[in-house]
Amino acid sequence: MMKPFDHVDANSAARAAALLGEGNQAAPSRPEDRPVRLIAGGTDLLTVMKDDIVSPQTLVNIKTVPDLDRIQFDVATGLHLGPLVSLTDLEHDTLINDRYTALAQAAHLSASPQLRNMATIGGNLLQQSRCWYYRGPFHCWLKGGDECYAREGENKYHAILDQGQCITVNPSDPAQALIAFDATLHILGPSAQRDLKVEQFFINPTPQRRALNQLDDDELITAITLPTPPPDTHSVYLKMMDRQTWGFALVSVAARITWDGDRIARADIIMGGVAPTPYRATIAEQEITGRSRSDLHSGLADRAAHKAMRDAHPLEHNAYKAPLGAALIKRALLAL
């Protein structure tokens, strides 16, 4: 059973930020020790509360804030997603399927139907690590301990790129698609508002900040905006799981290409499941930018995909991720 806590309904984002600011003033050294936390879908938060990984004194419910579940689109300004848009709504929105295909696909592949009905896009980006040492009864480095047990332990699901002191991977699927579409987070604190690209939002945990993202103790996401993609932009999200549905990604790829006639004017290839943050396969992007569709289909996609994985440093149990990542990149590019 969860430890007792208070529960407060916020009626505005500003009120939620104020409650976070007042309650988390003492600035706990570990993010897990924040006395006040927001609850939206609750699908991740309640699991870490039930496992006593976090034990907030107060939950601030933001589902009572009006209009945070809106999806709006305007060609001039692009797509506006409220942080409470459910994964189900993302998955079914016609315009998102049409113009931001990889995002709808990522939402669809993210979890079971029940979880997609409950989970919000904002909360999805703020999920805690799924590493079993983090979730289990281990005082691991990410939780403030001295050692990452996954490095020498059971690391089948862990990072093969950009490994820091923690080698977890970020569990979000939509994150990769949002980055491919150059999305920006609008973040509100008690006294200031700031904008941050989704790509910058995710961080490799550092000794000073053992967290997977840059959200401060007193901040919340109030909107996610995506520019309108140029004409002839196509995207896809591919995700490999242990089974066909409802698992976390072993490896995933959001790929987006903007064509200029027969040429690739812009390419974005963002991988999940391979690094502590969503990983931009820059080498592969550079390899294909400016090249033609027929190049792509006559060996270029394969070459670019394999180059993208050349810096991988697999651990004892996750060497499969490098060839899997290359295969997914290739398959994604050939689908565009």
Binding site: G42, T43, L46
Partner: peptide, 25 residues
């Protein structure tokens, strides 16, 4: 923990896991 589905109920018109839903909400 929202993994098995045995607690599924319908809230509004959507299936949810009642084990990951707070009654007060």
């Amino acid at each position: 923990l929202g993994q098995c589905g045995a607690c599924t109920v319908i809230k509004g018109n959507r299936a949810i896991y009642s084990c990951l839903t707070l009654a007060v909400e």
